[in-house]
């Protein structure tokens, strides 16, 4: 099933990606990264809701997110 990976050290906590996720599974963490920002993340439990649409990747100004999808088996 599709999945997203956040480079939490690169995230500046701008809060844009949660607003575009159609499945509303992106949250802003309470902890802070080395630069003092609250990074965005997706709970493992929510990961299976991800549809791999990459909206989060598109809106992210800092190329924090990588998006993967299963191979389309014929």
């Amino acid at each position: 099933m599709p999945k997203v990976i956040f480079d939490s050290e690169r995230c500046k906590g701008c809060g844009l990606c949660p607003t575009v996720c159609p499945k509303e599974i992106i949250k802003m963490s309470d902890r802070i990264n080395s630069k003092g920002y609250h990074p965005a993340y997706v709970d493992d439990s929510d990961m299976e809701k991800c549809i791999g649409c990459a909206f989060c990747y598109e809106i992210c100004p800092d190329a924090v997110i990588e998006v993967y999808k299963e191979e389309k088996t014929k």
């Binding site: 599709p2 990459a54 990747y57 598109e58 190329a63 998006v67 993967y68 999808k69 191979e71």
Partner: peptide, 11 residues
């Protein structure tokens, strides 16, 4: 798993 989106090479 197929990569859909990642930081482009030129960036």
């Amino acid at each position: 798993m197929k990569l859909v989106a990642k930081r482009p090479k030129a960036l």
